[in-house]
């Protein structure tokens, strides 16, 4: 899909530029955009690395395990059919805890492990189980406590961190809507 979007953006820009007489501006924009990408990633680098560093300290000192314990009761509600000590549920809990701490490098392996375990329970079917759908919906929403990239982008703001409470509220709304929708669709498909 990204191939179509990127190609479409480029082609549409050039066609529009032809009609609006801005061909030169678009050529300049190409060069400017490309070099801005490099400056942008350099300017984000420090703050992002700072947080991945801090979160690694958090993981090594067992903070992920603390979060995992807090998350577990919630997963009972979302995955009522999974046994308490199943491999799948353990991986799901660790994945969510790592996501909350913004450690996507650690969250993805747990997430894939959970998907494989869920797939094994479903006998390797090509159709997703309700648990897989719910888990994928949770992962496609943001659970991250510190939105590091955005904060890095906001370095020029008076209070770069002021968005953090709104981000928590909105994330909670979005996750709740996603989980509720998944539950409702699951119930509807069983009827």
């Amino acid at each position: 899909m990204i191939n179509y979007i990127w190609g479409g953006l480029m082609l549409l820009s050039l066609v529009t530029a032809f009609f609006t007489g801005r061909l030169e501006a678009v050529s300049n924009a190409a060069a400017r955009g490309a070099s801005e990408a490099v400056t942008l990633s350099l300017s984000l680098l420090g703050v992002v690395c700072f947080w991945t560093g801090m979160m690694n300290v958090a993981r090594e000192s067992g903070l992920v395990a603390v979060f995992a314990r807090a998350v577990r009761p919630l997963t009972k509600l979302l995955f009522p059919r999974l046994p308490r000590d199943s491999e799948a549920l353990d991986a799901i809990v660790m994945n969510i805890a790592a996501n909350v701490l913004g450690m996507s490098n650690a969250a993805t392996p747990f997430g894939l492990k959970a998907m494989r375990a869920l797939n094994k329970r479903g006998g390797g079917s090509a159709t997703a189980s309700h648990e897989m759908c719910m888990f994928a919906v949770l992962n496609s929403a943001s659970l991250q406590l510190v939105p590091t990239t955005v904060i890095a982008l906001r370095q020029g703001a008076r209070h770069p961190f002021e968005i953090i409470i709104p981000v928590w509220i909105v994330s909670a709304v979005s996750v709740a809507v996603g989980a509720a929708a998944a539950k409702l669709f699951a119930a509807a498909s069983e009827r």
Binding site: L118, A126, T127, M132, S140, V175, G178, A182
Partner: peptide
Amino acid sequence: TLAVYFGCVHIKDTRYTVKAALLADLSG
């Protein structure tokens, strides 16, 4: 995210996942 997660276990039919995930995005 959906491509990575479903891709790793070769799920073809993701049922209502996209609908629910996009509803979550929209509400966000």
